[in-house]
């Protein structure tokens, strides 16, 4: 057992999960308003719906002597109970992923870089979601973003919940905020299956390796964005500013690459994911 002081400062994986889910953490609109000058939200998948759980639109990011017209995509958890309900707490339906792809296709046509903000408990597990092809929508997103001929910068800001997160997290540069988490399954879900007891979530969180430093070590992300002392929920403005700085640096590097090279680099990066005996 460590000393009392050490125990107090050492953050467990479950502590991170709690911080990542904190309602006071900056949400997608805080990032959009703090990073873009003139954001214009656009709606609908042109098929059946407009999913409020997925925000999409164009805006300008200015800084470091440069200006980028970008497409922003992000999970919308909502800042009030009404918003939470309307957006399913950021759990996206197939329509949301199809809206994201529709607008990403438009961004590609005009070489607009794409910035995505990832914060979702997971894709929505609902009846209509299944009937409209949740699995197909996620699968198609993965295939689509892997081959997209325009830069994609991903920021995991809160909860990176499994396939529902990954669907907008395939990109050229994957940034992750210091206290965000990103996992194949929620700690509660994993504990329920492998421990047969949802209350063992802290053990599952530890075993799954879902914190930013772990994911950097495993090669699943590219860079950690430091948060203000105590976490982003203590100083949202500073947290958003830090993310903006990292996004600008990523855009500066990526917009220089010709599309062919960009796509090759992205494929090589995705292709390298994994750890197996050979």
């Amino acid at each position: 057992m460590a000393t009392k002081k050490a125990a107090k400062t050492a953050k467990t994986a479950m502590d991170c999960v709690k911080i990542a889910r904190d309602a006071k953490r900056p949400h997608v609109w805080d990032f959009i308003n703090g990073i873009c000058d003139d954001f214009e939200e656009l709606h609908g998948d042109r098929l059946v719906n407009d999913d409020a759980g997925m925000v999409a639109g164009f805006g300008t990011v200015t800084g470091g002597g440069a200006e980028y017209k970008v497409l922003v995509l992000g999970h919308h958890k909502g800042a009030s109970v009404e918003e939470n309900m309307a957006s399913n707490f950021g759990m996206v339906n197939p329509d949301g992923y199809r809206k994201a792809m529709r607008l990403a296709k438009l961004a590609e046509r005009f070489r607009n870089p794409i910035v995505t903000f990832v914060d979702t408990p997971g894709a929505y597990p609902g009846r209509e979601a299944e009937e409209r092809g949740q699995a197909e929508a996620i699968a198609k997103s993965l295939e689509f973003f892997a081959g997209l001929r325009t830069p994609v910068v991903v920021v995991v800001t809160g909860e990176g919940g499994s396939g529902g997160a990954l669907a907008i997290a395939v990109g050229d540069k994957v940034l992750m905020m210091e206290n965000a988490v990103y996992s194949v399954i929620s700690p509660e879900g994993c504990a329920g299956i492998l421990w047969r007891d949802g209350a063992k979530a802290p053990e599952a969180a530890e075993a799954l390796k879902i914190t930013a430093p772990d994911l950097l070590r495993l090669g699943a992300i590219d860079e950690i964005v430091k948060e203000p002392a105590g976490g982003a929920h203590k100083n949202g403005r500073a947290a958003v500013a830090a993310v903006k700085k990292s996004v600008l640096a990523a855009l500066k590097e990526l917009v220089k690459l010709p599309p062919d090279e960009l796509v090759e680099r992205r494929y090589a990066k995705i292709r390298a994911y994994g750890n197996f005996y050979k």
């Binding site: 996620i138 699968a139 993965l142 295939e143 689509f144 892997a146 081959g147 499994s162 396939g163 990954l166 395939v170 990103y182 996992s183 194949v184 399954i185 994993c190 299956i193 492998l194 075993a207 799954l208 390796k209 879902i210 772990d214 994911l215 495993l218 699943a220 494929y267 995705i270 292709r271 994911y273 994994g274 750890n275």
Partner: peptide, 23 residues
């Protein structure tokens, strides 16, 4: 589905296989 015993890298296989199928 994904093999949770392999954590995040099992999730990343979804991206890897889909990208390869795209090619």
């Amino acid at each position: 589905g994904a093999r949770m015993h392999e954590g995040i890298l099992s999730l990343m296989q979804m991206a890897k296989t889909s990208a390869a199928i795209g090619r």
